[in-house]
Each structure stands twice: as structure tokens, then as C-alpha cells.
Design a protein around this nucleic acid. Sequence first.
DNA 1: ACAAAAGTATACCTACTTGGTACACTTTTA
DNA 2: TAAAAGTGTACCAAGTAGGTATACTTTTGT
Lengths: 137, 137
Amino acid sequence: MKITQEADYALRIILFLTKAGMNARNDAKTVSESEGVPSRFTLKILRKLTKAGLTKSYRGVGGGYSLGKPPETITFKDVIEAIDGPIYINRCLYDKEFCNLHRTNTCDIHRELGKVRKTLIEELEALNFKDLMRDSK
Amino acid sequence: MKITQEADYALRIILFLTKAGMNARNDAKTVSESEGVPSRFTLKILRKLTKAGLTKSYRGVGGGYSLGKPPETITFKDVIEAIDGPIYINRCLYDKEFCNLHRTNTCDIHRELGKVRKTLIEELEALNFKDLMRDSK
DNA sequence: ACAAAAGTATACCTACTTGGTACACTTTTA
DNA sequence: TAAAAGTGTACCAAGTAGGTATACTTTTGT
């Protein structure tokens, strides 16, 4: 029932870039040192975030990373899914082969967990990084 | 962001015992075969549930398991926590040593994840097994 | 009394996932 | 054209999940 350490790091990294401002470039080393994330690992995370469009990367001398879109359009859900993949609280709901009862459609347990998942996702979608900045003042 | 397979099994087992009725005894083999849970593993799960007071066990010939308390007092949260331990969506919130920034109290990310966790728990607490039976009719 | 039917306790094993690193590469700018 | 950046792929070690094995204790029927 946890997000991974990697997704947690990613949230911190996006927050860092948000604070730096939309157009600022920060290289991976700066990000890594500011947020206490191992440097190689930072690069790996930033690659996933860039692939998802949440950050932009610039190569070569003077390169680095910035936000890929305005912070009010980046949600916790976006970041977590960019790193950990789709959010499910129960494996059966996305991998029906895994349900060894093969009764996914009718199982009461899974129907209820599906509802819980839905509100969890809605909550994570409601959390964007612009609001986060505002609230922290 | 998932409950374990074991907790999923446990939910099914409690539902099975709820359907059997408060005072019915079912031995581990019956439960295992009905719910498609490996038999040794069923025993392991039932021991955890018994320890948590969610089931009662009876030893010896004619023994078995029954619910430990009325189904309206058993929630999804109870079952999941009996198996997987306390629900946290972020490790930092329960193991501050793990937070390599050591700024748990002020970290904006973790404050927000704490709120999400709270509503998640409230939702799981609102789901009890008597209601589940009623709704499935 | 005692055998059989149940549950209990502890330890173990294997496979997968997580967190992280290494290495060889490409792009960009001064 | 060298140095400073990011990219891609593969690898590795530790931890966790899922499940099994072995040896026990308790209860009941005969």
C-alpha cells in the first residue's frame, strides 16, 4: 500500500523544479544534491519524467532540466504514475489472469476495492504543484 | 500502491466466513478449497486473523474457524492491517529515520500524502462485511 | 488410553521487485 | 574539438512476497 521510494524522490524533484520557476534550468547534479537523491538515480528518474512530459531536458554544455509544463497542470497522480505505472490497489483489477478465481466481474471484494481506488486516484489528481506552493506559504 | 496478495486472500476468507454465518465452523481445508487459496497459506493467514481477533479457532476433531466478532464490526481496514501491518502510502511517515532529508515535519509532499492516507483509511474503515453482504444482493 | 483430526509455531526457500550503479554513447556549446 | 551535459541499456545486491516443510499441541470419539 505504498508508493515507491523512487516515486517519492520524483515528487520532491518536481517540487524543486517548481520552486526554481518554470524557465530555470538545473542540471542533474544540482537537483541530486538539493534533494538528497543519489546522482545516478536522479538521472534515471528525470528520464522517466521527461518521457512523460513532466520535465524538459536540455543536452550539452549549460544543459539541465526544467518543468515540462506549468505546475498547475502537474498532479501527484501524474508523477506517481510516470514512475510506478498505473495505480491499482489490487492486482486482480488490472491483470485478470492473476485472479485465480476468475470471477473479477462479480467478486464483491474487488468491486469495493475498485471504488476505493477511484477516490484515491481522484484525490491524487486534485493535488497539483502550484497549489502546493501556495499552501506552503 | 497495492495491498498484498495475502491481504486479498484474507478479505475473501473473511467474506466466506461471513457468508457461512457467525456461528458456523469451517476447517482450513474447506476455506482453502472454496476460495482457491493454497492450503498451507490459508492456515498462515487464519493464524494472523485469529491473533487480531477477527476469527476464532477451534482445535481438535471437529475444529475449524469462525468469525471472531459480528461482521458489521469487521472492516476492510481491520483485515488489511491484520495481514500487511499499518497502512502508509509513504514510508517516511512512519519511519522518520528513513527520510533522508530529516524534514518530515515541514516537507510539503509528505504533509499532502499524509492527508491522502487519512482519507484512504477512512474509506477502508467505512467498509464492513455486513454491508458488503447487503449490497451484493 | 490413544489414535485421528484438527490447529500452532517456527523456520525456511525461491522468485520478483526495488533501489541503485556501471559503461559506453550522443548532443551541444565555447 | 574538448568539455559538459543528458541518454540507453544492462547489470547487481538487498529486501519483500508468496508459499512450503517440519515438528509440535489440543481435542474428541471409541
